[in-house]
């Protein structure tokens, strides 16, 4: 069972709750994701010590977003969810991005 998107209708009501698609992620794989998160944490602390001016914020947010993607896709299993949930998550983050983006259009020309 490796299908991720196509199995929803077939396994909706199995009665046991066992309607998942993907096999459990291996301990080794999850630990590798954790190593990646630790490396990115070290990177973000290290880069903060170098003065890049305005780019410090961009790098910090970029690294944080990479970490967020690792957590969302692998720890939260989003990569293995069906398209509906993927679309919902994308919508939520797009709405947040619009709110933040439009606010900055305003703030950017205010001060």
């Amino acid at each position: 069972m490796t299908g991720t998107d196509s199995d929803t209708s077939a396994s909706m009501y199995t009665g046991t709750g066992e309607a998942h698609a993907h096999a459990p992620l291996s301990y080794r794989f999850l630990t590798a994701v954790w190593v990646g998160l630790m490396v990115l944490t070290a990177v973000t602390v290290g880069v903060a010590r170098v003065d890049l001016g305005y780019f410090n914020v961009l790098v910090a947010l970029g690294v944080a977003s990479c970490k967020a993607l690792l957590v969302i896709f692998f720890f939260m299993h989003l990569k293995y969810e069906n398209l509906l949930i993927k679309g919902m998550v994308l919508t939520a983050f797009v709405i947040l991005a619009i709110a933040i983006g439009l606010t900055f259009v305003d703030i950017g020309y205010r001060y």
Binding site: L25, Y27, L30, T31, V33, W34, L37, M38, T41, K67, V71, F74, F75
Partner: peptide, 9 residues
């Protein structure tokens, strides 16, 4: 982050 790993595990 480590506690997140252990939940996933």
């Amino acid at each position: 982050i480590t506690s997140s790993l252990t939940v996933a595990l």
